[in-house]
Design a protein around this nucleic acid. Structure first.
Length: 272
DNA sequence: TTTAGGG
DNA sequence: CCCTAAA
């Protein structure tokens, strides 16, 4: 295949090092002889015009004076969809936390669309300190999405735990001991097909693993399944007008038209 | 392990 | 859906 798009769309990989890929702006933590010192002391005033503090500016082993450990939970339809544990500087702001969430989900959850609440109170002052909202160690923050800010895809589950970038979920072994080939043939529902379309739209062609994580995390669908389904959808969209499909939702010209459109757009981006 | 394609 | 060469 051609080179993948330049924009990295990879979900935080379970890296062993804490800050393997996070903040790209902060160079490197000079020696750690005086970690407690390099921390945020004065950094807020120093870079006030820009991002308050690079959320990933410190490392796992650092002793951050006045740090706050909190948990961010994304609640949707009554249940927690995803949850992350963060350790932030004492002078972290609402906005810096939102950016951390965006980083952690590798951009899947856009900072501008994130609404944070603490004890039912919406934290709308983005430049306010988390402490201004009474947030301290062990606090729990609820994350909501501002739908008016545009469609936001489902983020990967349990992306992080502890410091950003720290490994979290185990790989879920493929105990394919005996003939575990109990894979029954289950047709994609229209909803699944639509999620797949959104995935290709958002991540691009070939990003099956990414789409799997974003939209089929808790499903049996594998990246290969998604790839196969996309191939079939595109083929279907190229059938002559009036073609009759067994699967009902494929008989909707608008539906297949969308598939064709998304495919065309994705193809152009795929080769640039 | 994931992707791309033919089976 | 499966199989598997390539990456």
């Amino acid at each position: 295949m051609t080179r993948a798009s330049k924009r990295k769309a990879t979900v935080p990989k379970p890296t062993t090092k804490a800050n393997a890929k996070a903040g790209t702006k902060d160079k490197k933590p000079t020696e750690t002889s005086k970690k407690a010192e390099k921390v945020v002391a004065g950094s807020l005033a120093a870079t006030q015009s820009k991002a308050p503090v690079d959320p990933f500016a410190f490392e796992e082993g650092d002793v951050v004076v006045g740090s706050i450990s909190l948990t961010v939970k994304w609640v949707m339809k009554g249940h927690t969809t995803s949850e992350w544990t963060f350790s932030v500087p004492a002078d972290a702001t609402v906005d810096s936390l939102r950016k951390m969430v965006e980083e952690t989900t590798d951009g899947v959850l856009k900072a501008h669309a994130i609404i944070l609440k603490h004890k039912s109170k919406e934290m709308d002052r983005t430049s306010a300190l988390l402490s201004d909202y009474g947030i301290g160690d062990g606090s729990e923050v609820v994350l909501l999405l501002n739908h008016e800010a545009g469609p936001v895809p489902v983020p990967p589950t349990a992306v992080n735990h502890g410091f950003p970038g720290e490994p979290v979920a185990k790989k879920a072994k493929k105990d394919k001991k005996e003939g575990q080939s109990d894979k029954k043939r289950e047709r994609f529902t229209k909803a699944e097909a639509e999620d797949l379309i959104k995935g290709v739209e958002l991540y691009g062609l070939g990003q099956w693993a990414q789409i799997k994580l974003a939209y089929f995390r808790s499903t049996q669908r594998t990246g290969v399944d998604l790839k196969d389904k996309w191939r079939n959808l595109v083929t279907a969209s190229q059938r002559p007008p009036g073609f009759k499909f067994r699967v009902e939702y494929l008989n909707d010209p608008a539906f297949l038209g969308h598939v064709a459109k998304v495919n065309t757009d994705a193809l152009s981006k795929h080769r640039e």
